[in-house]
Design a protein around this nucleic acid. Structure first.
Length: 471
RNA sequence: GCUGGGGUGGCCGAAUGGCUUAGGCGGUAGCCUGCAGAGCUGCUCUAUAUGGGUUCAAUUCCCAUCCCCAGCUCCA
C-alpha cells in the first residue's frame, strides 16, 4: 500500500510524508481528558482533530490502533473527590461516563482502548525503576522521585525550548526545593497529608505517580516502545510531551514517537476562553441551549487544526446551515428519478474524490476539502434541477457522499421515505386535498401544525416531500 | 522579558509573486413556486492591520509599527 499523506511534525516543524512503522498500520496515541469535570469545547476541538486524523488514515486504508488515556489521578481529581467526600474512583467514574456520552454525541469514533492511569501503576513503577537503575532518576529529599533533565541531552527537542532559558519561578511548586535542578520533574510523588487516602504502597515508597509517566507507561504497553503518531493540544507540548520523550527514550534507548501532532487552541468570541470572561462552555452547556451536536462537530472541525479558531454562536448557526445543505443534497440524490445519463456525474465525482483526497492528504487541509465538496454539491444540484441525473448516477454520487461522510461524520443516515405514523400521514393527505382545492389557508395551517411536530413538508415538482427537522 | 503563531469581504474561514483572490454563512435581486421550503443565477460597491521597501507585478517576500493569541513545569 502506498499513500501520500503528509503530516506536520512538531519535532521537525515540517510537513513530512507519513511512513508507518508497519506497512498498512498506524499506531496512534492521543492525550485524553483529566476526568475531574465535564470537558469543554476546547478539549473537544482536540478530540475532533484526532478523530478526523484517524478517520482519514482509515479512509486511506490504514488499520489504525488508537489509544486514548484517561487521567484519573492528579491534584484536581484528588481535590474533587475530597470535596465531595467520595472515593477517587467513584468521583472519576462519573466524569468518565460523561466523557463517553459527550464523544458519542459528537460522533467521535471510540478509541480501541481507554487505559486509566490508576490501572497502570505497576507499569509506571517498572519504567521508573529502569530510569533509576540507569542513573537518570533520583530520590529527592522529600522522598519523591525526579527525572534528572541534565542527563538527557536531547531534552527540549520537541518544544524547541532551551532548558537554561526557562523562566524560573513562573509557577513554583511546593516540592521544588527537594529537586536537584529546577527543571527536573516528578516521576513519583511522595505521599503528603493533602493526598488523604489516595496513595499506593510500592517499592518506590508510599505515594502516587507524577503526571507524565502515565502516558509513557500506557502508550508503551499498548503500542510498543516506538509508535507512529502522538497527538495533543499545543499546551501539552511542553512540558508534558517533552517529559514523555525524556522518560521513554531514556528508559528504552529507542525513538519514542515518529510523528508528533499538536492542535491549536480555540478562542471564544475573540477572547481566550475562561470562566472569568463568562465565555467558558462545556458541550453540555451548548446542548442545553439547543444546539445540534453535529453542528458543533462541523464547526470545530472545519478550521485547520493548527490554526487558532474563534468560536462564535454566529459561526455555530452557520455550521448548522452548512450541514443542513449537505443533508438536503443527499436527500435529493435519494429521490432522483431521472433517466438521462449525461456522463457528467462521473466527471464530477472523480474530480471531487481527487480534490478532497489531495487536500486531506496535505496535513488534513479540510478547508479545501470542504470547498471541493460544496463545489460538487452546487454543480450536482444544477444537474438535478435540469433533471439530468439518472438514478444510477445519483446512486453513484450518493455513494461517494457516504464514503466522504465516513471521514466527516456530519451527514449521517438521511432518512429515506419511511412510512409516517398514520395520524401524521392522515394530516399530510388532508393538507394535500386542501391544497389541490386551492384552500391555501387550511393547507398552510396544517403545514405549520406538522412543522410544530417536527415534520417539514416541501412541495416539489415531483410531488410532496417531507423530512424530519433536525435539532 | 524570551520563544512561537496570527491579523483577509457583513461574519467564519482558504489560497497564492501575476493567469478566475476558494468555500460556507448572512443579506439582496431574479428564476421556480399559490405561498413557503429546497435549488439555481447575479449582486454584496478596489477584502488582504498600518507605514515603508524589493519587484515589470505583493495580500503573498523584506523592514518597522500597532493589535490579538499561545508556551515558558502538571490548562486541549
Amino acid at each position: 500500500m502506498q499513500t501520500n499523506i503528509c503530516l506536520f511534525n512538531t519535532l521537525t516543524r515540517k510537513k513530512e510524508t507519513f511512513v508507518p512503522l508497519e506497512a498498512g498500520k498506524a499506531k496512534v496515541y492521543t492525550c485524553g481528558p483529566t476526568v475531574y469535570d465535564y470537558a469543554h469545547i476546547g478539549n473537544f476541538r482536540a478530540f475532533l482533530f484526532e478523530d478526523l486524523l484517524k478517520r482519514w488514515l482509515t479512509y486511506r486504508g490504514y488499520k489504525v490502533t488508537h489509544i486514548m488515556n484517561l487521567t484519573d489521578i492528579d491534584d484536581k481529581t484528588i481535590k474533587g473527590s475530597q470535596k465531595q467526600g467520595i472515593p477517587l474512583r467513584q468521583f472519576t467514574d462519573f466524569y468518565v461516563k460523561a466523557f463517553f456520552e459527550d464523544i458519542k454525541a459528537l460522533n467521535i469514533l471510540p478509541a480501541d482502548v481507554y487505559p486509566k492511569a490508576t490501572d497502570h501503576i505497576p507499569e509506571m513503577i517498572q519504567i521508573i525503576k529502569t530510569l533509576m537503575a540507569k542513573g537518570v532518576a533520583y530520590k529527592g529529599e522529600d522522598g519523591s522521585i525526579y527525572f534528572s533533565v541534565c542527563k538527557f541531552p536531547e531534552y527540549g527537542k520537541l518544544s524547541h525550548l532551551k532548558v537554561g532559558e526557562l523562566k524560573a519561578g513562573a509557577r513554583v511548586s511546593q516540592d521544588e526545593y527537594a529537586k536537584e535542578e529546577a527543571q527536573d520533574f516528578a516521576l513519583w510523588k511522595a505521599w503528603t497529608p493533602e493526598d488523604g487516602d489516595v496513595f499506593w504502597e510500592t517499592e518506590l515508597g508510599k505515594g502516587r505517580p507524577g503526571w507524565h509517566i502515565e502516558c509513557s507507561a500506557m502508550s508503551t504497553k499498548y503500542l510498543g516502545e516506538t509508535f507512529d503518531i502522538h497527538c495533543g493540544g499545543v499546551d501539552n507540548m511542553f512540558p508534558h510531551h517533552e517529559n514523555e520523550i525524556a522518560q521513554s527514550e531514556a528508559a528504552t534507548g529507542k525513538t519514542f514517537v515518529h510523528y508528533w501532532m499538536h492542535n491549536e487552541h480555540l478562542q471564544v468570541e475573540g477572547k481566550k476562553m475562561s470562566k472569568r470572561f463568562g465565555n467558558f462552555y462545556t458541550l453540555r452547556d451548548l446542548l442545553a441551549k439547543g444546539y445540534d451536536p453535529i453542528a458543533i462537530r462541523y464547526l470545530l472541525m472545519s478550521t485547520h487544526y493548527r490554526q487558532q479558531f474563534n468560536f462564535t454562536f454566529e459561526g455555530l448557526e452557520a455550521a448548522k446551515s452548512a450541514v443542513e445543505r449537505l443533508r438536503n443534497f443527499v436527500r435529493r440524490l435519494h429521490e432522483a428519478e431521472g433517466t438521462t445519463a449525461t456522463g457528467k456525474v462521473a466527471t464530477l465525482t472523480a474530480k471531487l474524490e481527487a480534490c478532497f483526497g489531495g487536500s486531506m492528504d496535505d496535513d488534513l487541509n479540510i478547508g479545501i476539502a470542504l470547498s471541493s465538496l460544496f463545489d460538487f454539491v452546487r454543480e450536482m444540484n444544477a444537474l438535478l434541477d435540469a433533471n439530468l441525473v439518472s438514478k444510477a448516477e445519483a446512486a453513484e454520487a450518493g455513494g461517494l457522499m457516504m464514503r466522504l461522510d465516513e471521514v466527516l461524520g456530519v451527514i449521517g443516515k438521511v432518512e429515506v421515505e419511511e412510512a409516517l405514523p398514520q395520524d401524521i400521514d392522515a394530516l399530510v393527505q388532508k393538507r394535500e386535498t386542501a391544497r389541490k382545492a386551492k384552500n391555501w389557508k387550511e393547507a398552510d395551517e396544517i403545514r405549520a401544525q406538522l412543522k410544530a411536530m417536527g415534520i417539514v413538508l416541501e412541495d416539489t415538482a415531483q410531488g410532496i416531500r417531507w423530512h424530519k427537522e433536525k435539532a
